[in-house]
């Protein structure tokens, strides 16, 4: 029940795009058609799902105040949390590289559809944002952080596919010239965000 509630909330209520604006750069750049949006969305879900539990464990056993207590009392007072940004981003960059190589070797078909998006993801704010929110929200165990990762990833995926579908349509609309392209896309995302806010009162 806890997991289900966390899952639904991270998809709809605390949506990475509509509530926190995370991953906007690639969101706007790669949402011109549904097919590529689909590829990037799947890649984001995947990378979130891999990096978040790893960063969770690192945070728990290495970074947070008192995390080194398992090494002995001598280390219990150490607080390495000031290193968390650099550790998180290094893990993300490394995982993205490893994932890229593994996928290329063992699933060439998947690689040819995802491949070009993977390097982009290292600097996608949604991934680092996921890890930072995970740290701030102090999840109880690895399971919760994995569920949160899956939910946020799916939320991001839904958002990019939906926007791509809308942009395919608005390409044929009669938009005022200064608003064409970027301007109208921002406004569309804003309106989608307002629509997503109806999920706010959700009870589980």
């Amino acid at each position: 029940m806890e997991y289900l509630s966390l899952f639904v909330k991270s998809i709809f209520v605390d949506n990475m795009i509509f509530a926190y604006f995370l991953g906007m750069c690639s969101y706007l750049a790669v949402s011109k058609n549904v097919k590529t949006a689909n590829g990037l969305g799947v890649a984001v879900i995947f990378v979130l799902l891999v990096t978040l539990p790893i960063n969770y464990l690192l945070n728990k056993y290495l970074l947070q105040p008192g995390a080194l207590a398992w090494l002995g009392d001598k280390y219990a007072a150490l607080d390495l949390s000031f290193l968390s940004y650099i550790v998180f981003i290094a893990v993300i960059a490394a995982i993205v590289q490893v994932v890229e190589m593994v996928v290329e070797k063992f699933a060439p078909a998947l690689y040819s559809s995802l491949g070009i998006f993977l390097p982009l993801i290292a600097v996608n704010c949604a991934i680092l944002g996921g890890s930072l929110f995970m740290q701030e929200r102090a999840f109880a165990n690895v399971g919760e952080s994995a569920v949160y990762a899956l939910g946020s990833g799916i939320g991001w995926y839904l958002a990019i596919v939906a926007l791509a579908a809308i942009r395919e349509k608005t390409a044929y609309s009669n938009v005022p010239a200064p608003l064409k392209g970027l301007g109208i896309t921002f406004i569309t995302v804003g309106l989608m965000g307002i629509a997503f806010m109806t999920f706010m009162g959700i009870k589980l």
Binding site: P178, L179, G183, I187, V189, G193, I194
Partner: peptide
Amino acid sequence: ILPPMALILLGCVIWIQRS
């Protein structure tokens, strides 16, 4: 105050600049 308005305002800023 709600998050989506930031995006809509940004759209308006772009509108003005590109006009």
